[in-house]
């Protein structure tokens, strides 16, 4: 089944076409990698898909539903979660409060429910345990180390129960031990049925973790396929090495 499909997605900033007619399709249940040189439009692509910026042209479909002009919170309700390139948590909320921000549906009863709602707190603790940061639940997020904040960000995204998770540089700025841990988490979460789209510069990680890799250059995909194939593709080598 198709998870995410975009058709001719285009966005220009001034005269620069950051994303230029992108048509891609992600299959459900895979870990997809999205790679490309700096400025090739990967983050802009993320921002369009999640509704944070509007495309000039093109369509975004998720599980065959058109979500092109949906506000970000409706994209989230449709089942797409994301993390940010520079990890973003709510610095002056506690770890547990960070977890309880996520809204799955806009229902009055859910919104008026207390923060100490047992079921929700239990769900939050479950994800914090899986990230290995449950001992920090009462700390303010700004007191966490960068690596812990990255784990918290992912845990909070999981609270919204997304089926497709977009990760923007999950290994950026974290140490090798934590990279292994995050890669392991992504594989486990994928095995439980979640689809991933991962923007990452760490090639070793991408090639080792992903089932399918899409390569962007100058705002458009230039190659895609299994990691082993993409790695040998002359167009990819040219885009990266300029040979």
């Amino acid at each position: 089944m198709t998870s995410l499909r975009t058709e001719g997605l285009t966005k220009a900033f001034g005269g620069v076409r950051a994303v230029d007619g992108v048509t891609v399709e992600l299959r459900d249940g895979l870990i997809n990698g999205l790679i490309g040189p700096n400025g090739s439009g990967k983050t802009t692509f993320f921002n369009i898909v999640t509704g944070m910026i509007r495309a000039d042209a093109g369509r975004v479909l998720y599980r065959d539903r058109d979500i092109t002009r949906h506000a970000p919170h409706r994209v989230a309700h449709a089942g797409i979660g994301r993390t940010f390139q520079l990890c973003r948590v709510f610095p002056r909320l506690t770890v547990l409060e960070n977890m309880l921000v996520a809204v799955r549906r806009t229902r009055l009863r859910e919104l008026l429910a207390g923060l100490r709602d047992k079921g929700e707190v239990e769900r939050a603790r479950h994800w914090l345990r899986r990230m290995g940061i449950e001992h920090l639940e009462d700390a303010e997020a700004r007191d966490l180390s960068y690596g812990q904040q990255k784990l918290l960000e992912l845990a909070a995204v999981l609270m919204a129960e997304p089926d497709l998770i977009l990760l923007d540089e999950p290994a950026g700025g974290v140490n090798p031990a934590l990279i292994d841990r995050i890669a392991g988490l992504v594989r486990d979460l994928n095995a439980e049925g979640r689809t991933f789209l991962v923007v990452e510069h760490n090639m070793e990680l991408v090639m080792g973790m992903c089932d399918h890799v899409i390569v962007f250059d100058r705002g458009a995909p230039i190659a895609e396929g299994p990691p082993s194939v993409v790695r040998e593709d002359p167009r990819v080598l040219e885009a990266y090495l300029g040979v």
């Binding site: 506000a71 970000p72 919170h73 989230a76 309700h77 709510f90 909320l93 996520a102 919204a160």
Partner: peptide, 16 residues
């Protein structure tokens, strides 16, 4: 409170 801390981030977590 999440809006106070980071409005776009809150929106991406499904907060209208």
């Amino acid at each position: 409170r999440a809006i106070r801390e980071d409005e776009d981030k809150a929106e991406s977590l499904g907060v209208p």
